[in-house]
């Protein structure tokens, strides 16, 4: 066991040239930092997904963080309170608390690595949080993986995923409209073994990605599942609106769909090329953004 300091465990990746620090921070927050041992070109903070998507994207976030750190970009991944190794209960999660956690982690990490405006990366629901963090962090660039366009759309997707599971299990699924009623009755709804609490639902329902990004122009990469020919009219609308606000938005489409609600071994194996593509495209874009800034 190699403890480094108060409550942080450290591993040194000599081959790739970075130090990894996993630890508990103020307020009962768990997080992992990846710090290049040579020159640091910039910093990234990852706002993870939630519910079952959190578990299924965990390894992708870790792989991305290590890939970036190996290229001289410092990265921090956080666990919101009520999720992962952090304190708190899932039923206590709200959008505001998630934002508070992500902001605290961003401020602390930015100071640690000496970067004024870290790039913020959001995964699925975490995109809403990431957008709000970026809005509070000046002109920070944003990377959004298959972003939730709104709380309402995300909860609808979550419930649909659970209905698919129920059908697959041979159960008669609850109707699409049953979700709010169940939430009202039980104060939480079980989606694939993860609770959506009323507090989170109420706090995020009316939030939209475009509103969270705000009015300040910034560079944004949106990476979404494919195939490239597939249409996402709502996403296109959001992109147009962001561009109308002066944001420079790149949209990249993967060769195949990103299905993150479920993941058995076969699905995981089949998804490997797309995950590798997701990481490679993200690394390329971030490198272009941050290394360019460092040179400038």
């Amino acid at each position: 066991m190699r403890d480094a300091g108060a409550n942080v465990a450290t591993r040194i990746d000599e081959e790739l040239g970075f130090v990894e620090e996993a630890g508990f921070f103020e307020g009962g927050l768990f997080g992992v930092s990846y710090k290049p041992t040579a020159r640091t070109h910039g910093a990234v903070v990852i706002c993870p997904a939630i519910l079952s998507e959190y578990d299924h994207t965990y390894s992708i976030d870790v792989s991305l963080a290590r890939a970036l750190a190996a290229r001289g970009i410092a990265v921090h991944r956080l666990h919101y309170r009520g999720s992962g190794h952090s304190d708190g209960e899932p039923s206590d999660m709200t959008f505001e608390r998630m934002l508070e956690d992500a902001l605290a982690a961003t401020v602390r990490f930015a100071a640690e690595v000496g970067v004024e405006q870290p790039l913020i990366l959001g995964v699925r629901f975490g995109s809403l949080v990431a957008a709000a963090v970026a809005a509070g962090s000046g002109g920070s660039p944003l990377v959004l993986w298959d972003p939730a366009l709104s709380g309402r759309a995300y909860f609808r997707d979550a419930w649909r995923a659970d209905m698919m599971f129920q059908i697959n299990e041979g159960a008669k699924p609850a109707t699409r409209d049953a979700f709010p009623a169940l939430l009202e009755r039980d104060n939480q709804v079980d989606v694939l073994g993860y609770p959506i609490g009323k507090a989170l639902y109420d706090s995020a329902l009316e939030r939209s990605l475009v509103d969270e990004v705000g009015d300040r122009a910034r560079r944004i990469l949106i990476l979404r599942g494919g195939p490239p020919a597939s249409a996402r009219p709502k996403l296109d609308e959001a992109v147009e609106e962001l561009r109308g606000r002066g944001c420079k938005v790149d949209v990249e489409v993967l060769d195949d769909a990103l299905i993150l609600w479920f993941q058995g071994p076969e699905m995981r194996r089949n998804a490997r090329p797309h995950v590798a593509e997701l990481i490679a495209r993200t690394v390329d874009w971030i490198k272009r953004e941050l290394v360019k800034d460092a040179v400038a």
């Binding site: 403890d3 465990a9 996993a22 508990f24 009962g28 927050l29 768990f30 190794h85």
Partner: peptide, 8 residues
Amino acid sequence: TREETPFF
């Protein structure tokens, strides 16, 4: 988390 220690 006050009682928890991460390790490798």
